[in-house]
C-alpha cells in the first residue's frame, strides 16, 4: 500500500488541469462571467493532442524536446513530493526542487531562443530575469527552513510542521514569514498576476506565452499541461508545508481507506482554499510594470532573511 502511495504524484499530474479549471471558474465568476466548465482544460489538451505539432523550419531538436523536458521535470517533482500522504518514492531535498525548477525554465528559455522569432527571444530574456529574482528567494527560504529544522529533506520538514500543529504554528512567527515569502515566490515562479498575465493577447507583454506561441498541437498541449502541473505542485508544496493538517486527524500517516479518504479530502479542501485566495489576489491586483517585479521578490527576500535572523538569534 505504501509503495502504491508513492505514486500519489500521478494523481496530481492528472488532476492539475481540473485544478486550473476550478481557478478559471472562480475568476470568471468574480468577473461576472459564467466561464468554461472546470473540465475545459482537459478538452483543450485532448484537442491539441490530436493536432499535428507544426514546428518552424528554423528550429532544432532542442525546440522539439523541450515540451517533453518540461513535462517530465514537473511530473518528476510531483512524484517526489508528498501530496496528500507522506509516502513518496524517494526522500527529496528542497534544493533538488529548486534546481529542477531552474532546469525546466532554462530549457524553456533556450527553446524560446531556438525558434528564432522575435518574441521568443524577448520571452526568454524575461523568463531568465524573473527566474533570477525567484531563485535567490527560494534559496533563502530553504536556508531558513534548514536553520530552523537542521534538515533540507522535504518529508522531514513536513513531519516537523505536522507535529507542530496549528496552535504552536502560530507561535512560530518565522514560519509565518516564510509562508508569506514562499507564497510571493510562487506567484513569481508560476508567472501569474502581478508578474505576468497568463490570459493576455498582447504579444509585447508576454513572457511565458511568448515562447509558447511558437508551439502547436501536441507540443503545445504538453507545455500547457506542464504549466498546470507546475502550479499544482507549487500550491501543494505551499499547502503541505505551511497549512499542515490538524494533529488529531493524522491523515499524513494513515493507511486505511477512511484515513486516506480523509487525507485526500483535506488536501482538496486546502487546495481549493489556496485557489480561492489566488483568484481573489489575481483579480484585486493589476499587473506590475516589468521593472517593478523586483519589488515583490525583494519583499520575499527580506521576509526570508528576517526569518533566518529571527531563528538564529532566538536559538542563542
Amino acid at each position: 500500500m505504501t509503495k502504491l502511495l508513492g505514486f500519489q504524484g500521478l494523481l496530481l499530474i492528472l488532476l492539475a488541469p481540473c485544478m486550473i479549471g476550478v481557478l478559471r471558474k472562480l475568476e470568471a465568476w468574480l468577473e461576472l462571467r459564467q466561464g468554461p466548465g472546470i473540465f475545459q482544460p482537459y478538452r483543450d489538451i485532448v484537442k491539441l493532442m490530436r493536432k499535428p505539432a507544426m514546428r518552424a523550419r528554423t528550429t532544432s531538436r532542442l525546440f522539439a524536446i523541450t515540451p517533453y523536458v518540461l513535462f517530465s521535470v514537473y511530473g518528476l517533482l510531483c512524484l517526489l513530493a508528498p501530496v496528500f500522504h507522506r509516502a513518496t518514492l524517494a526522500s527529496v531535498d528542497l534544493i533538488v526542487v529548486i534546481y529542477l525548477l531552474g532546469m525546466a525554465r532554462f530549457a524553456f528559455s533556450l527553446a524560446g531562443l531556438d525558434a528564432g522569432s522575435s518574441f521568443g527571444g524577448l520571452g526568454s530574456s524575461r523568463q531568465m530575469f524573473v527566474h533570477l529574482l525567484t531563485e535567490i528567494g527560494l534559496v533563502l527560504v530553504i536556508i531558513a527552513l534548514m536553520v530552523k529544522w537542521n534538515t533540507v529533506s522535504l518529508t522531514a520538514i513536513f513531519d516537523k510542521h505536522w507535529e507542530l500543529g496549528y496552535v504552536n504554528f502560530l507561535a512560530e512567527p518565522e514560519l509565518i514569514l516564510l509562508a508569506l515569502s514562499l507564497a510571493l515566490l510562487i506567484l513569481l515562479e508560476s508567472a501569474r498576476i502581478p508578474i505576468d498575465n497568463p490570459a493576455t493577447h498582447l504579444e509585447l507583454t508576454m513572457s511565458h506565452k511568448a515562447i509558447a506561441l511558437e508551439y502547436a498541437g501536441r507540443d503545445l498541449a504538453l507545455i500547457e499541461w506542464a504549466e498546470m502541473i507546475k502550479l499544482g505542485f507549487l500550491l501543494t508544496l505551499l499547502g503541505n508545508l505551511f497549512l499542515p493538517f490538524p494533529r488529531w486527524a493524522d491523515p499524513m500517516h494513515s493507511i486505511g481507506p477512511s484515513g486516506l479518504a480523509l487525507a485526500f479530502g483535506g488536501y482538496c479542501a486546502k487546495l481549493i482554499l489556496l485557489l480561492l485566495l489566488l483568484a481573489f489576489w489575481e483579480l484585486s491586483q493589476p499587473k506590475l510594470r516589468l521593472r517593478s517585479i523586483i519589488g515583490p521578490s525583494l519583499v520575499a527576500i527580506v521576509l526570508s532573511l528576517t526569518a533566518i535572523i529571527y531563528t538564529i538569534t532566538l536559538r542563542k
Binding site: E31, L32, K287
Partner: peptide, 12 residues
C-alpha cells in the same frame, strides 16, 4: 484596464 490585467474592474 484589461491591459493592466485588472479584470475585476475591466469586465464590469
Amino acid at each position: 484596464v484589461h491591459d493592466m490585467a485588472f479584470d475585476l474592474a475591466a469586465s464590469r
